[in-house]
Amino acid sequence: MEIMKLVGAIMLLMGSFSLLISAIGLLRMPDVYNRVQTGTKASTLGAIVSFIGVGLYKYDAWSDGNWIGRVIILIIFILLTNPVSSHVLMRAAYFMKVPLSKLTKVDKLKEDIDNNVIKEPGNE
């Protein structure tokens, strides 16, 4: 079954291109918020596709080893932790007032804080 190996290798190649594009975005984008948009989150799909590729490449070890279980655990793990960490990081960056880039059109959160619709979480 050479074809399974080929499919797995091609999925690895696609995932590595996705990781490369996210790294290019990390270099080119003008401020922290846009870097997160391309940097850590575009790489999530790349990592998932690569893990599926690894699982397909090792098709001959599906019966005895626990490869496929480990691969599924890693995919679920990345899907659960990645949004939480990027949300916490960006929330911290916003409230320690890392500046938004000049291209930013609208900031509804700042408007609402200025109009006292919501409270800014202080350093209590």
């Binding site: 594009i21 975005g25 900031d107 609402d112």
Partner: peptide, 26 residues
Amino acid sequence: ELIKANIDVTKRVLSPSLPINPGIVK
């Protein structure tokens, strides 16, 4: 949705003029 959004972001990153239009909406 994940795949569509990834293709969209890929186009934005690779185009030379960097067509982004960021903002915070509610």
